[in-house]
């Protein structure tokens, strides 16, 4: 790697002040797993890294609101999230997704903020968080803002973060009795990057689905909602709507051929796994499943 400098600010404010514009050769580094993978082959050659490891502890914490809502600081490692009793209680689908996200060693280092800011569609948490209607907290020189997770992703490896902005955390609203599930499907080896990630979340009114959220990752350029699936399921009994939801998902998702499968095959996978993820959510305990 090309030589670079390293700054280690003690506060978020200082970190934001140092980052400046995106083209200034200054990059923030949290866990660094994804960043190192781009720096080693020379794809990124920053002049200075700004480490976020020393900023206020609030950004590495998991807080629970009285209603069961969660705030997870951006510097929280994925491993801490995975082992958090609060996350397991209030958003068990997140815990479940983390179990198969990369490996223990990477989760020990990788942070929630880095995971989201990377903008890689193959990552697992974006579709899960979209299905849970989570919000991203963003701070910049002009103050703070919150956006829906689905609005964070603009195009392949590109987010809607402005230059000089950092993700500070994620809030997951209280899930109450909502059911949710996530399925990750790999087509080469078992621990490969996924060819497809599908997440769904809904309330049950008797056996009728309400307030459905469905999201897809990996197969599409960006993680995104599948609104046609939500429409196909809304107000229906699951058993009556699975086929239609699968067809809607396959029609809506814009997929491409790559090493993990042709576009035609991925559409078939989306069709099949849409049904499976809904069934998995139906079978889950309230709030999700582990």
């Amino acid at each position: 790697m090309k030589p670079f400098g390293l700054a280690e600010p003690a506060s978020l404010k200082d970190a934001i002040a140092m980052i400046g514009d995106a083209d200034s050769g200054v990059r923030p580094i949290a866990g660094g797993s994804a960043l190192m993978l781009m720096m080693k082959p020379g794809i990124l050659q920053p002049e200075t890294l700004v480490s976020l490891r020393g900023i206020e502890p609030r950004y590495s914490s998991i807080e629970t609101a009285g209603d069961g809502g969660l705030f997870i600081g951006a510097m929280t490692t994925l491993r801490r999230m995975e082992l958090s009793a609060d996350v397991a209680r209030h958003a068990p689908v997140v815990t479940q997704a983390l179990r198969r996200l990369s490996n223990v060693r990477v989760r020990n280092i990788a942070t929630l903020g880095g995971h989201l800011a990377h903008g890689d569609p193959h990552l697992d948490l974006p579709p899960v968080l979209i299905a849970l209607r989570a919000k991203v907290h963003i701070a910049g020189r002009d103050g703070e803002r919150q956006i829906d997770v689905e609005d964070l992703f603009r195009s392949y490896l590109e987010t809607s973060l402005d230059s000089g902005e950092l993700i500070t955390g994620v809030t997951v609203p209280a899930q109450g009795n909502r059911k949710s599930a996530y399925i990750k499907h790999t087509t080469r080896s078992a621990d490969d990057w996924p060819a497809l990630g599908l997440a769904v979340s809904f309330s049950l009114d008797g056996d009728v689905l309400r307030d459905v959220r469905a999201a897809i990752g990996a197969a599409t350029d960006i993680p995104q909602r599948l609104k046609s699936v939500e429409t196909a399921l809304e107000g229906k009994r699951a058993a009556d709507a699975l086929q239609g939801a699968g067809d809607a998902a396959a029609a809506e998702a814009q997929v491409h051929s790559d090493a993990r499968g042709s576009a035609a095959y991925k559409r078939e996978l989306i069709r099949v796994f849409t049904g499976r993820v809904i069934r998995k959510a139906m079978e889950s305990a309230a709030g999700g499943t582990i």
């Binding site: 580094i29 660094g32 190192m36 060693r105 990477v106 280092i109």
Partner: peptide, 13 residues
């Protein structure tokens, strides 16, 4: 106390 990937971890850390 945590296993990490040495080749992706800056020595400075």
């Amino acid at each position: 106390g945590k296993a990490v990937t040495g080749c992706l971890t800056l020595a400075a850390f």
